[in-house]
Design a protein around this nucleic acid. Structure first.
Lengths: 205, 205
DNA sequence: CTCTATTCGTGAAAAAAAGCACAGAATTTG
DNA sequence: CAAATTCTGTGCTTTTTTTCACGAATAGAG
């Protein structure tokens, strides 16, 4: 069952399922069904069951899923029992905002370092984090056990910064710069192109 | 040719093609080929041609596409000859950052208003925009010709705010709150769930 | 304890998206 | 100016993702 290739969207949805199950669990709901979860996320019940099916059988026919058990199962599948340390590269408007953004903590995503090229920004402290020169990157990534990097530099610097991150041992990059990064196969990049997303929205208006 | 249903991804990619064509055009490159564009975006040349093919034939065999003509064609298809006015709802960390963010302007995406529930924030000015109470929404959306709304409120308020926006006549919403919004069919929502995107990244690490 | 109403798990079918491959058209080269 | 090369546009194929639909299992009512 583990050997089938898992659709890209499945993993992302599993995180959403976990969030919903937690919410329902918090409302003292003991049992959830695939359709309950589906309704809350605008997905079909079949989709929910199929996604879960990639990893095993967690429910009981006729009853649904025990909220607590499903929560535990998802946390285990998704390795949600550990913290992830992240760094921001490019402490401009967006980078600073992400450093201050309070929404990551509850998902155990912690920004623990920030880098910038601009000498004037070095040493400044945002959200308790002192901005370091990018020359520190390799050392800091190791010493602070950073596994995710968020690139918020201008487009022109993104590839250079990406190369440095890869050399420093980073395998997960979230890229806000509107350029396609060139990275080795074993490095995962998630592009977040806000302008493009907004523009796409306008098309369907 | 127009009648085939256009894949969701196609539109988003077309905006990327336009960006690349502009960049190449800026380098005084007269002619671009589907493979040139594809390489720059990590897409196959076939994909580029197929996407363009939904809207017509813009190239010449053997030569490729005239950069300037393709640019014009894409701008026309994507209605990039107009400005889009946007508002931010929720002037917290993220909302403020987006207001200040300089990356939208070059795509003619302008944030022209901001709303918040928190009385203490009303009247404050960020990036030249005075934060208004949400009661003003319906009026301001009309008077400032706003067609896109960006929701950066906490999850708990997102649905309420979304309802207000819809009532005010908004048809495009970019939603940063990690909840699925319930909206009428003719309202398009683009979810940007940063935590989920980061988490998904961790899975493949 | 039996009957009914649910709900799961999962192959099989359908739909959507991406990639292939090649005829034909245009350009460049020698 | 003919031959070689380049590159588009597109029908067809393949792959990927989603939906369907139904047997089997279970809970709960009576």
């Amino acid at each position: 069952m583990r050997e089938k290739k898992i659709p890209v969207g499945t993993i992302s949805r599993l995180f959403a399922y976990l969030r919903e199950v937690k919410a329902l669990s918090g409302l003292n709901i003991r049992t959830v069904s695939s359709s309950t979860i589906g309704e809350r996320l605008n997905l079909s019940d079949a989709q929910v069951r199929k996604d879960l099916g990639f990893f095993g059988s967690f429910g009981t026919s006729g009853a649904g899923y025990n909220a607590n058990e499903l929560k535990k199962a998802l946390e285990s599948i998704l390795r949600k029992n550990q913290d992830w340390n992240m760094c921001v590269v490019g402490a401009g408007r967006l980078g600073s905002a992400l450093m201050i953004y309070p929404g990551f903590a509850k998902d155990r995503l912690n920004i623990v370092a920030a880098f910038d090229i601009n000498a004037r920004k070095i040493g400044k402290t945002i959200a308790g984090i002192s901005i370091e020169p990018i020359e520190n990157m390799a050392d800091t990534v190791v010493s602070k056990k950073i596994s995710i990097a968020i690139i918020t530099t201008p487009a022109g610097q993104a590839q250079f910064v990406s190369d440095m991150l890869v050399k420093s041992g980073i395998h997960c990059i979230m890229n806000f710069a509107p350029v396609k990064l060139n990275v080795p196969e074993d490095v995962k990049v998630e592009d977040v192109d806000l302008s493009r997303a907004l523009e796409t929205l306008t098309f369907f208006a």
